[in-house]
Amino acid sequence: MPILPEIEAARPQLETIFRDLHAHPEIGFQEQRTAGIVADKLREWGFDEVHEGVAKTGVVGILKGRGPGNRRVGLRADMDALPIQETSGLDYASQNSGRMHACGHDGHTTMLLGAAKYLAASRNFDGTAVFIFQPAEEGLGGARGMIAEGLFKRFPVDEVYGMHNQPDGRPNRATICKGPAMAGASFFDITVTGKGSHAAMPQQSRDALVVAAALVGQFQTILGRNLPALERGVLSVTQIHAGSAYNVVPETAALAGTIRFFTPEARDLMQTRMREICAGFATGFGVQIDVEFREIFDVLLNDAALSDEWMAAAADVVGTDGVTDDVQPFTGSEDFADMLQVVPGAYGNLGHAGTVPLHNPGFVLDPEILPVGASIYARLVERRLPLEAA
C-alpha cells in the first residue's frame, strides 16, 4: 500500500500548510499562531473535541471512529521552532527574524494534520484516536508540561506514537531502534569564583579563567577513564564566559554544557565525577566552584512490540524494503521520552532527500515526506484500532 490516495489528493493543501508554518516559526510556549491553525483545522474537519491551551499552547484533538471500541491510540507531533536565523534561501523562508524551523517540527505538525484530515473523513477505525500537538520540545519541557497538566488523565491512551524527519538523503526509509533509542540529557552550569587582579600582576589573583579552562580538559577524562568502555556517554562543554577587559584577570568564569546517557548509572557517574573534579580544583586553586545540573530529557525507551507495529504501519506505505530496526541508539534527545515514561509506545524516523543536518540554519525539509508521514500515522490508527474487530 503506497501513500493513501486521499492523503495524496490532499498533498497541495498539506504543502500550503507546511509552507505557512515554516514562514511563521514560533519558539517554545509561544506557538499561539501555530496552535490556532491546528485547532481551526481540526474543527473544520469535524473532530469530536478540540482542546487548546494544554501547557500554554498545546492542542489535543479527539476523534472517534465508526466502531464503538474503547481502545485509544495517541499520535503526537511537536510544533516549536528554534532561535536560529534562517539561511536556506527558500521562497517560504522564515519571516520571523531569529526564528527558524530548523528541526522540521513544521513538517511533523503538517504530517499529523494530514492524518487528522484523512481519518476525520473516513473514521475507518474502532475506538478513539487522540491527536497531541505539543509545544516546546526543544529543551523547554513541553511534554512534561502537558503531562503535569493531566494530558494522559484527561485524554487517556493505551499507546502513543511519534515520528521525526531524518535528513539523510534516503527518501522514504523508515527506521526505528527498539529499547533505549535516544539519550537522556542533563544540562549543567558551573561558576568559578576566584579573585580578580590587574592582568600585569596575575600573582595577586586567583584566576577563575585558568581554572575554568583546565576543567574543560579534565572533564573529558571522565569518558575515557571512568565510564565503562561499553557504556555510551557524551560530555560536552558548550559555553565558557569570563572577563570583560584586556588588562583584567577576571574574578569569575562560567561554564555550561550537556551530558548525554542511556542509563541512570552513567548519568550519576558523570555528574558525581564532575562534582568531585570541581571540588578538587576548588581546593587546589583556592577558589569557589558551584555546580548545578538540570535534568532535561529522559532516555527514550521504545516498546519492542509497539516498535514492530510502527514498522508494520510504515511498511504499508514505504514497503518492507524501506523499513528497518537495524539502527544504533542516537545520542540526541527528544522529550517524547517523557510521554513514553507514562504510556508505552514507539518513536521512529523517516528519511527524506535533504542532507543539511538538523539545527543548521540552512536545513531544508523535503516536502515530499509530508504525505508519507501522514499515511504512516493514519495506518497506525487503522492497524491498532481495526474496524473489522468491532
Rank of each mutant, 00 (worst) to 15 (best):
G46I: 03
F47G: 01
D48Y: 11
D48K: 10
E49Y: 02
V50A: 07
V50P: 09
V50E: 03
V50T: 03
V50Q: 04
H51K: 13
H51D: 00
E52N: 08
G53H: 10
V54H: 12
V54G: 01
V54Q: 05
A55S: 15
A55V: 05
A55D: 06
A55I: 02
A55M: 08
K56S: 10
T57C: 07
T57I: 05
T57V: 09
T57Y: 06
G58W: 07
V59H: 02
I62A: 06
I62E: 03
I62D: 02
L63N: 03
L63M: 15
L63Q: 02
L63A: 13
L63P: 05
K64G: 02
K64H: 15
K64Q: 14
G65L: 07
G65Q: 10
G65W: 06
R66D: 14
G67S: 10
P68Y: 05
P68S: 13
P68V: 00
G69W: 06
G69A: 15
G69S: 11
G69K: 13
G69I: 02
N70H: 13
N70C: 04
R71K: 15
R71T: 14
R72Q: 09
R72L: 02
R72M: 03
V73R: 05
G74L: 06
G74E: 05
R76D: 09
A77S: 15
A77H: 03
A77I: 12
A77R: 00
D78H: 06
D78A: 09
D78W: 04
D78P: 09
D78G: 07
M79C: 06
M79I: 15
D80R: 08
D80G: 11
L82I: 07
P83F: 04
P83W: 02
P83T: 10
I84A: 04
Q85M: 09
Q85E: 15
Q85N: 12
Q85G: 01
Q85W: 01
E86A: 11
E86Q: 07
E86S: 07
E86W: 08
T87C: 07
T87W: 00
T87F: 05
S88Y: 01
S88R: 04
G89M: 05
G89W: 08
G89F: 06
G89Q: 11
D91P: 14
D91S: 14
Y92E: 10
Y92F: 15
A93E: 12
A93W: 00
A93M: 12
S94R: 05
S94N: 06
S94Y: 02
Q95Y: 00
Q95L: 13
Q95I: 00
N96T: 12
S97P: 14
G98C: 11
R99E: 11
R99N: 14
M100K: 01
M100P: 04
H101D: 10
H101W: 05
H101L: 04
H101Q: 11
H101R: 10
A102R: 04
A102D: 01
A102G: 13
C103M: 04
C103Y: 01
C103D: 08
C103N: 09
G104H: 00
G104N: 04
G104V: 02
G104P: 01
G104Q: 02
H105Y: 09
H105L: 11
H105F: 12
D106H: 13
D106C: 12
D106S: 13
